[in-house]
Design a protein around this nucleic acid. Structure first.
Length: 763
DNA sequence: GACCTGCTGCGGCGTG
């Protein structure tokens, strides 16, 4: 079969073929204007994901998960067939009566980027594109409300605001909806924001009284069937999963570099790493990822000092979520500027698909937090044809001696890094955790529905949000208790007919803009220097005038604090310290910790390790065997029993809660749990006893935890529902009892761990 | 010890 170009007929067989050499079937099914746009864009062929996705999207019946690597043309795989369908309807004389495609995206910056790209296509095809988020002027939003049509690119929070503020308009706005597209699906799965998104999409379908096909896009889905189930709760099996692996991309150059922390006053590991990063990144544009905002500030400062001392023209700029938007956008603009050499030191702010131009190399400082994040970071480079993706991971370990506790001798940072790189190379990503009942987000959605509908009956709320909606695990009795909790806090009240309405406090909550986000944020202090806001800082301890700070890559002294208005006034200074930020980290997965143990037991040396990293690998293995980890998981250490479960943080947390509920004083120290005033052999007995008892009810176990609140509206929950929410979010009782069964099969620990000489002296 | 994401309506002011 040959391909002839529409209109011209002059380019038969112009190479419009998928990479297997067969003629493109999809191209011929697109509308001629879409075909012309593809041709004018200079594409030689459709990408695999575009070829594979086209029939399903064109049919417009089934839900689809489109999974393909970064920069593989996933967005266009949805847009091209959707534009074809919508344009054919225009040709047939059908005028749209509302928005035809909603694209929900997790970031404003992604929406802005996609708006540009989609507008180029839609201008040709004759379809309008609108964007709607917090930075879009109200006048533009008013235009959409007046004449809704075409594509609407929107955040979940703005969609929430539409339901609350324009509740009566939802049916008119979306009455003609043909597709719902969800971009970067992985960023929503298993989160409060994801439950909110499921609810909002479901609520659109409820209002227009029909099902709308959903199309989800992602490059890093750890579990495709879980993604399908998330996309259409209760009917994941009917979702078509389209995965294209063949575009998985070009060369990857990867190195793990090890450092052994020197004793003071020798140069610190940070100085040595900054020297090495500086030596490798000058020239071109680079991204340096750190694991905390404080580390970003520290390294941006160290690198800028080196550039200044060397008279180097590379700019080193900090980029993280607490910096003012103007400062961040300035960094992004400089990265895009081809005349500047810019290295951004950043947190996960630059991890997702924000277009910052072509990046030459990626540095990761410290062990990666997740495989998914590492993959996204790697995907920021190598986006130009013929250029490899370059990733250098910098890992440092402390010098240890015989008084160091056993976990430090194991070189856990290095082994975690190697485990994550191996999982990355194997194409594995963290599967979503069960998130439990998501009661905090359910509270938000109950209040939102009552606002949208001007009041609603309890049975209908349960039917729409739980029985037929995304909060399926919430039964009538939990729901009834939840409504009583909300009544007690004056969030809801009931009128004489039994209709639930927002109470006084609920009314204030819903009518404040902070209501639209499902996730919790801290109360930040604004940092002001020279009359300009330079960012925000979550302050945990009182900050005194005179305190020195490094922020935005510059040094400051605190001159004054306004606690009422939560403003911190700064003046430039010659010295400073990185600020401390509050935060709750992610969870390390079971698979990572289990692979770490396999790596200790193995003798293989990955080729991507530099000499010091190899040495740390050898030391870690030596200590692993010397301490008896190959056959034991329980050890004595200075009056404490140590337990190495080699499982993820959720199981470690569950085990900690179980032991604490039996009266033991338990802590977590990286890879191990520490139990005070107990011998290892006694802990072995305790664990064996536990393994013989039936697993506890997770909710009963959760009740023993002192602080169970974590999500935004958790503090409104009564004791029962709070424990239910905690259990679903933070406990894995079955996984923990599987582990206990394994531990009970181990021989009882006999000897205290051998106390060898100091580790790592020979560097 | 660890990341990120989001936000309406309206009053006041200056300018064309």
């Amino acid at each position: 079969m040959t391909t002839s170009w529409p209109g011209s007929g002059s380019e038969p067989g112009s190479g419009f073929e998928p990479s297997d050499g067969s003629a493109s079937a999809a191209f011929h099914r697109f509308h001629p204007e879409v075909q012309r746009w593809i041709y004018d864009s200079g594409w030689e062929h459709l990408r695999d994901i575009q070829e594979l996705a086209a029939p399903g999207v064109l049919a417009g019946e089934r839900d689809l998960v489109l999974s393909a690597s970064t920069a593989s043309g996933k967005s266009e795989a949805a847009w091209l067939p959707i534009c074809s369908v919508l344009r054919r309807e225009l040709d047939a004389g059908r005028r749209p009566l509302g928005v035809q495609t909603v694209v929900v995206s997790p970031l404003k910056a992604l929406i802005n980027d996609q708006y540009q790209r989609l507008s180029d296509l839609c201008d040709r095809v004759g379809l309008p594109v609108h964007r709607w988020h917090g930075d879009v002027p109200g006048s533009r939003k008013a235009l959409v409300l007046r004449a809704p049509s075409g594509f609407l690119l929107i955040t979940p929070e703005s969609l929430e605001a539409l339901f609350v503020r324009q509740g009566t308009e939802i049916g008119r706005l979306f009455g003609d909806l043909r597709y719902v597209v969800i971009d970067e699906l992985h960023s929503f799965i298993g989160t409060a924001r994801g439950a909110q998104l499921q609810s909002l999409v479901h609520r659109i379908e409820l209002r227009i009284r029909r099902r709308v096909p959903r199309i989800a896009l992602s490059a890093t889905l750890g579990d495709l069937s879980a993604a399908a189930e998330f996309l259409r709760p209760g009917a994941g099996r009917e979702v078509e999963v389209v995965a294209a692996d063949s575009d998985a991309g070009g060369d990857v150059r990867l190195q793990v570099r090890g450092y052994l922390m020197a004793d003071p006053p020798a140069p610190t590991h940070a100085d040595r790493i900054a020297d090495d990063v500086f030596a490798t990144v000058h020239g071109g544009d680079n991204l340096v990822f750190a694991n905390s905002r404080a580390a970003v500030e520290e390294y941006a400062d160290l690198l800028a000092q080196r550039a200044a001392a060397a008279g180097n023209r590379t700019e080193f700029l900090a980029h993280h979520g607490s910096l003012a938007r103007e400062l961040r956008e300035d960094v992004e603009a400089r990265l895009r500027d081809p005349d500047r050499q810019v290295t951004a030191v950043c947190t996960s702010t630059l991890e997702l698909g924000i277009d910052v131009g072509s990046v030459d190399a990626i540095a990761q400082l410290g062990a990666p937090l997740t495989v998914t994040g590492l993959r996204q970071r790697l995907g920021r480079s190598g986006r130009r044809p013929g250029r490899p993706a370059v990733l250098r991971v910098y890992v440092w370990e402390s010098r240890t001696c015989e008084t160091s506790p056993p976990p430090d001798a194991l070189r856990g940072e290095l082994f975690q890094t190697v485990a994550m790189v191996e999982l990355l190379l194997a194409g594995w990503y963290e599967p979503p955790h069960a998130a439990g009942a998501q009661l905090s987000t359910l509270i938000q959605q109950i209040l939102s529905v009552t606002a949208e509908r001007g009041g609603e009956r309890a049975d209908r709320l349960h039917r729409d949000l739980c029985r037929n909606g995304p909060f399926t695990s919430v039964n009538r009795s939990v729901f009834a208790q939840l409504l009583r909790d909300l009544g007690r806090h004056d969030l809801l009240r009931q009128d004489a007919d039994g209709v639930l309405l927002p109470g006084g406090r609920g009314d204030r909550l819903v009518n404040h803009h902070s209501f639209y986000a499902a996730f919790r944020t801290s109360t930040d202090h604004r940092l002001v220097a020279g009359g300009r806001s330079i960012g925000t800082l979550p302050v945990q301890r009182p900050l005194l005038p005179g305190t020195l700070l490094i922020f935005g890559g510059r040094r400051w002294r605190v001159v004054n604090i306004d606690p009422e208005r939560r403003v911190i006034y700064l003046t430039p200074s010659d010295s400073g310290q990185p600020p401390s930020f509050a935060g709750n980290g992610g969870e390390t997965a079971d698979e990572v910790r289990m692979l770490m143990r396999d790596l200790y037991l193995s003798a293989e040396v990955p080729r991507y390790l530099d000499p010091v990293a190899r040495q740390l690998l050898a030391e870690g293995r030596k200590q692993f065997h010397r301490h008896g980890h190959a056959t034991q998981q329980l050890f004595d250490w200075r009056g404490e029993a140590l337990l190495f479960p080699w499982r993820g943080d959720r199981i470690m947390n569950t085990l900690l809660v179980v032991l604490a509920s039996h009266g033991w004083t338990v802590g977590q120290d990286g890879l191990c749990l520490t139990v005070h005033d107990l011998r290892a052999v006694d802990l072995w007995e305790v664990l064996a006893d536990l393994a013989r008892t039936p697993p506890p009810d997770p909710v009963d176990l959760a009740r023993t935890v002192r602080v169970q609140t974590r999500e935004k509206h958790d503090h409104y929950l009564g004791d029962d529902n709070l424990a239910l929410a905690y259990a679903g979010r933070s406990l894995d009782v079955p996984g923990t009892w599987d582990l206990l069964a394994d531990l009970a099969r181990l021989p009882p620990p006999v000897d205290p761990p051998s106390r060898g000489g100091s580790v790592g002296e020979d560097t």
